[in-house]
Nucleic acid binder design. Structure first.
Lengths: 345, 345
DNA sequence: TCCCGGCTCGTTAGCGCAAACATTCGCGTG
DNA sequence: CACGCGAATGTTTGCGCTAACGAGCCGGGA
């Protein structure tokens, strides 16, 4: 025996399929069919069963269904710090897509990231019998964690780098950065400085690559850039370092928060934006249009990322082998008022 | 018969408890005990079982356990738009607290809120046999949705208003707003304008109440304030309206994003902050310290909210009846550079 | 010596559902 | 009017686990 019979909120025993069957005068199997394949049941019978379902406020026990079918209707998401704008938006859009297809989403939100934590997160979810897993962990080191997983786990890596043994959906950070830098060069800037994101982030390295590629394509040199930590504070500190240098006329910050700090440091130092220095960010957070001045930045379409990731995962669950496929979402340059022609041009 | 035997990633059948039992030379029941109540098994036997568990890479099937025990180890969270800073932070801290206690979190993220959507979200989760539910929906109308639920559902309403038939954990918006306004009055401001949040939000009405209470306590009048929509844009639009009025020396915006827009409008109109006008926000988003100028604001401790909500829910699941109890988390005024004595004082 | 109590482990019996197979029914056909 | 065939419904079985109880074994005390 097991399971102290759970009680309905009103104190009566929760109805099970057998109860519905009894009330409708059919077998439990017919009730099951009404719920899962209504077209196989005569309309008249179906109506009787549905009436009983409503009368008893019956709802199927998902655990029993999972046990019997092997499918749970739950997707797992392992994500790094969901208070950050990017991960939060991605997870949100995944959840929307999943809900539209009647999947529920279970989430594990990592506050620190290392090889072990990814594996633990995935394990936690597999322990809950999820049908498939998304990993939203835009870190280079996340790849190591993923490599230790069985390669045919139904898993999609969102925003992961190359060299991951799973299908990947990611924003083309490199192309976005190239667009940003080309925009600055086309305005007449001699060169463009770059404040990179944390070294371990795929997003950061992609943006740095794009910056470098655009500069080198234009025949400019691109030394190793300093790295911030995505925070406004790190942008501010970098800004203080470069504010005194009159040679600096354009800066590409790897995200909007750092750009905000940068703007502040430049203003404090008396350098005007975009008069003296042009600044470009990345993300297009909702506030970017109200930065001082409104920020030129690169918008990522997180909704698209979530939808594609979900579709891909659905394919994998359905058995479609899309190993190591990679889908790329193109970001878009949004020009506002923080960029302009350099003074004296 | 049922469930096409699921295969392990390496192609073999996934090990079940019986397999472990056979390898260890014990019964399945003993394996179960080793996993759930190790102290009831002789250390020597326990070691044999654990060895077999590792050898077969056995992991218990959660659906079967749920079916047998009636408990799932999953908590459901219904939240409004998790891309907003507040809800995202709250959900994040709930997930952290849950994970520490070996609970998994399933999430339903609502993009629009009405009486129906809350109920649907809760239904979805109940259909997944969650042990308990958190509703993070700081809307007045959410209360209506909650009232339609059976009152003894193990549910905790996070950030809900009064008059909800469930335990509530919430930030004391009113007290936070009072602190903000008293701070401005104590600097010598004759009065304080207020840009409220959307009418339907509990957070918004609480902050408005606090603003009014502080003003009236000081003998000032407090007319009905205009309401924004939390966005920087709405703060900007309000700022344009008031920028021309020299009587205005202090504004309390109901959140930081609106304060940002406000700051921008004031600057464009040539009014200095805090020289001409002082501004206070609410939230203390990570970027607030880098606004132009660094924003005086009210910090909410979302981590504390999440932890308390989780503890409360655990009590409810455990059968502790804490009906309609209300736990309040105190916010904290963070004074930065956007507030100062009014000019001419 | 025998008996009893405690510890360890096994046996039985479901939890609620759906897959596979069995059966019944209705109806058109020869 | 018997037959056959497909559609509608029923019966059986088992998914993997654990609650409840029962059996075996040991040692200590009468």
């Amino acid at each position: 025996m097991a399971a102290e019979s759970p009680e309905a909120p009103d104190g009566r025993r929760l109805a099970v399929m057998e109860d519905v069957a009894a009330m409708a005068g059919v077998s439990a199997m017919t009730v099951s069919r009404v719920l899962n394949a209504p077209e196989k049941v005569r309309p008249q019978t179906r109506a009787r069963v549905m009436a009983a379902v409503r009368a008893l406020d019956y709802r199927p026990n998902s655990a029993a269904r999972v046990l019997a079918t092997g499918r749970s209707g739950v997707l797992g998401v392992v994500s790094f710090d969901t208070t950050l704008y990017g991960p939060a938006s991605t997870v949100f859009s995944i959840e929307q897509a999943a809900r539209e297809h009647d999947y529920t989403v279970s989430i594990v939100s990592l506050s620190s990231l290392n090889r072990r934590s990814i594996g633990e997160g995935v394990e936690r979810l597999r322990g809950q019998s999820v049908d498939g897993i998304m990993v939203v962990a835009p870190h280079e080191s996340a790849a190591d964690g993923l490599k230790e997983l069985p390669a045919d786990t139904p898993l999609v890596a969102v925003g992961a780098g190359a060299d991951v043994p799973f299908p990947v959906v990611a924003v083309d950070h490199r192309a976005g950065a190239e667009r940003a830098v080309r925009h600055l060069l086309s305005l007449g800037h001699e060169s463009v400085l770059h404040l990179a994101g944390p070294a371990d982030w795929v997003d950061a390295s992609g943006r740095t690559d794009g910056w470098r590629a655009a500069l080198e394509a234009a025949g400019r040199s691109a030394p190793v850039p300093p790295a911030g930590d995505w925070s406004a504070r790190s942008g501010y500190e970098y800004g203080r370092q470069i504010a005194a240098d009159p040679e600096v006329t354009a800066v590409f910050a790897a995200n909007d928060a750092m750009a905000l700090g940068l703007l502040r440091a430049l203003r404090e130092a008396g350098r005007e934006v975009p008069g003296d220095v042009s600044v470009v960010g990345f993300d297009d957070v909702p506030e970017a249009a109200y930065f001082p001045p409104p920020l030129t930045t690169v918008r990522q379409n997180f909704g698209e990322v979530g939808r594609r990731a979900f579709d891909l995962l659905l394919d994998r669950i359905g058995g479609v082998s899309a190993e190591r496929s990679r889908r790329v979402v193109e970001p878009e340059l949004v020009v506002r008022e923080s960029t302009g022609v350099p003074r004296g041009t």
